[in-house]
């Protein structure tokens, strides 16, 4: 392999590595399921990774796709499913750890959908973290 090419690849690799680990909070696998047009609400799921040493919290979510977006948790107890908003502190993401928003557990409840949730559609979600501040991520509508 030629020397200049090796140099360019090295720089690219280092840049990619830096981008991958620089941010304290990384959000991946942001998605929601296609939802009947007649359904008032939808849900979004994601995985949040905290690369910092200290605990952070996802405090709130906003999106043009939702009249209001709330952080909720579905909980199963003796076969009875209940769903309630998480408390004001938000969703905890431990330092060096992660929080999974997933089906049947923590999720973003998209109240009063403002758009059709059809497969292939994408929506911006604005996530507000206690320490890391605000970041915008893209949610994809897909079947699972």
């Amino acid at each position: 392999m030629s020397r200049p090419l090796v140099g360019i690849l090295t720089v690219l690799a280092l840049t990619a590595a830096a981008c991958g680990s620089d941010a304290d909070i990384e959000v991946s696998d942001v998605w929601g399921r296609p939802s009947p047009a007649v359904a008032t609400n939808g849900a979004f799921y994601m995985v949040i990774t905290n690369n910092a040493d200290t605990t952070d919290h996802l405090i709130s979510v906003a999106s043009d796709a939702c009249g209001v977006a709330e952080l909720h948790e579905s909980m199963m107890s003796d076969g009875v499913m209940s769903m309630s908003p998480v408390d004001a502190a938000g969703i905890e993401v431990p330092g060096g750890g992660r929080a999974a928003l997933e089906v049947g557990g923590l999720h973003v409840m998209c109240v009063d959908k403002q758009a059709d949730f059809v497969a292939g559609e994408t929506f911006d979600l604005s996530l507000e973290f206690d320490n890391a501040g605000t970041m915008v991520v893209e949610a994809e509508i897909r079947e699972g």
Binding site: P36, T40, A43
Partner: peptide, 13 residues
């Protein structure tokens, strides 16, 4: 119930 965003649509899916 249809207002349910998580568990009910998942089950039907």
């Amino acid at each position: 119930y249809t207002f349910c965003p998580d568990v009910c649509p998942t089950t039907l899916f």
